[in-house]
Design a protein around this nucleic acid. Structure first.
Ligand SMILES: [Mn+2]
Ligand SMILES: [Mn+2]
Ligand SMILES: [Zn+2]
Ligand SMILES: [Zn+2]
Lengths: 132, 132
DNA sequence: CACTTTTTTAGAACCATTATAAAGTACATT
DNA sequence: AATGTACTTTATAATGGTTCTAAAAAAGTG
């Protein structure tokens, strides 16, 4: 298993559940956006196995803290996560309620001219709302 | 009352509650960011009057639909609104959990090079996360 | 005023998320 | 391999922001 080392190096024990969640999240051609519920369904379908919702929450939050997934700032009743952890931005399709990646190279350089005293910039994220 | 016309023109009856919420939201020197709970407290303090939480939700949503307040896309357990309805952006202070306005003029022009077929851009919002 | 429509309200319901605490697992030490 | 300890999983309960409900109140119309 290729994720055992990754988990151990993060101080997370490589449990069966964590390894399975790694497979679903990271063993894919393309990155994707998901809610906890999306992920739970994906796990049920892809693996013949149930993982409790509590564990899915715990694991996704642990992975987020380690930087293996990112939260996407958006107004929704559910929290959206992203397996694409590169600096990048998003379209949000208001009609289809769907996120679409917008690579950094698809957005001209963003210059923040204002500085806040004693604060460092942690991230800059652009959300482009689109509709029909 | 200067808000009676504004409400009537929007097809909203100028009730006592709506007029009071208008006062709290719009009778200020500066615009501000708020959650529904913030607003409820502000109403209790500023006016000697209680407005039911349901009415506050209803009114803020009605005002949002009319474009008198905006929702700010951010990950939080509560929804944040803004009385500044101009096109502008935000700093989000991760330590103090506070929003700070970033006027359009403080951000260089943003060029979105990617297009989505058949979709129009409704808004472009930048969130700059900052920390100590 | 009489009538209709909209609004307010207290309280219930909803539901994503977090907390709890008991049983199970990983792993270092013997 | 057995033991001990810390970590993890799990079912379930609790939390809390938001939405729904339905009855009373207020606004608008003529
Ligand atoms: Mn949330
Ligand atoms: Mn919300
Ligand atoms: Zn993305
Ligand atoms: Zn603002």
């Amino acid at each position: 298993m290729k994720y055992i080392e990754k988990l151990r190096n993060s101080g997370l024990r490589p449990t069966k559940q964590r390894l399975q969640i790694c497979e679903v999240l990271f063993d894919t051609e393309k990155t994707f956006h998901f809610t906890i519920n999306d992920l739970a369904k994906k796990i049920e379908n892809q693996l013949n196995n149930k993982i409790s919702l509590a564990t899915i929450y715990n694991t996704v939050h642990a992975f987020e803290k380690k930087g293996y997934v990112k939260q996407i700032p958006i107004n929704s009743s559910q929290t959206y996560f992203d397996t694409n952890i590169s600096d990048h931005h998003h379209f949000y399709d208001l009609n289809e309620r769907r996120l679409i990646d917008l690579e950094n190279s698809d957005v001209g350089p963003i210059k923040i001219l204002k500085k806040i005293n004693g604060k460092k910039v942690k991230s800059i994220e652009v959300l482009v709302k689109i509709e029909d």
